[in-house]
Computed example of a mutant assay.
Amino acid sequence: MPRSRALRNRFVDAPGSLGERMRLARWERFRRCFPGIEGMSVVDLGGTAEMWLRAPVRAKHVHLVNLEEHPAELPDWITAEVADVTDAAVAAELSARGGFDLVFSNSVIEHVGGHGRRRQFVAAVETLAPRHWVQTPYRYFPVEPHFVAPGFQFLPLAARARLVRRWPLVHSRPDGPESALDAVVGIELLTRTEMRYLFPRSVLLSERVLGVPKSLIAVRREL
């Protein structure tokens, strides 16, 4: 394993890492918000089978909707499709199927691409199920979570693209200037005001580290 990857694992990805402990704490909070999750059908917008297979929480059924291909082999309680829920036709077709109790989305809304597409994403969340859990990293947390870099989100775009080619804690190092721009331009971290604007009827929870908000979670438990 490359040294940079090993370093990232130590802080973010590996069992026992700070990132893993925080993910487990988030799952426990999720369970408290939805104590009947074992009997619910969940549509996960942007999630992966690996995340649910590793989770200490199991829903009755999970349907994954993602832009990337899913594994060919899935357990019988997970189904999946490749689709973009910011496409109104896709969201309408999913909604017409019905049967979802909860929309789940973890660190996705900041990637969908601009305010207009975020509004379309929220429209899908609102129509697909009566309950939701939509988590996103908080813009003003001191460390940018995707690149594990202090203050990274406040740098000019060109500086972020240069830094991401050298920073040791990136998940996948870009191989050139264009891929470096691709890696950073599509991430737009949200503020509390933006999340309240997008989810005015939801409860907005904060996930904190040393008292400082790290993530925001829009939650609706019931209608």
Rank of each mutant, 00 (worst) to 15 (best):
R119K: 13
R119N: 12
F141E: 04
R160A: 02
A88G: 08
T193Q: 15
L169P: 02
P145T: 06
S41T: 13
R5A: 15
R31Y: 07
F100P: 03
F154G: 13
F121W: 02
N106V: 04
L64G: 06
R208D: 14
V170F: 11
P156Y: 09
V65F: 03
W167M: 00
A96D: 14
E194C: 04
R208W: 08
F104K: 04
V134L: 08
I109N: 10
L128I: 15
V42L: 00
G211H: 00
V185P: 12
R58G: 01
L155N: 11
A89L: 15
R118H: 11
E50W: 03
H70I: 12
L169C: 01
G114I: 08
G113C: 02
H146C: 11
V184H: 07
V184A: 04
P75Y: 09
F104E: 09
S95L: 08
E207L: 05
L74W: 07
S179K: 06
G176H: 07
E207M: 01
F100W: 13
A149L: 08
S95Q: 10
P156T: 02
K214F: 01
F104S: 06
A129Q: 00
E81Q: 02
R29T: 00
D175V: 10
R58L: 01
A88F: 07
A129G: 01
N106M: 10
A89K: 15
D44K: 02
G16Q: 07
P200S: 15
A25W: 06
R97V: 07
E28C: 13
P142R: 00
G186E: 14
E38H: 05
R23H: 14
W77P: 14
F100H: 08
G36Q: 03
F11K: 13
E68S: 14
V57Q: 08
V112H: 06
A49H: 05
L94Y: 03
K60W: 09
F104I: 01
L210T: 03
K214D: 00
V62C: 10
L7T: 05
R10Q: 13
E126V: 10
C33L: 12
R10S: 14
E110Y: 01
E194K: 05
H63A: 12
F141Y: 13
W27R: 11
Q120T: 13
S172A: 14
R21Y: 10
A180T: 01
H111K: 00
Q153Y: 09
P156G: 01
R196N: 15
F11M: 12
V164T: 00
E69G: 12
R166D: 10
A25H: 11
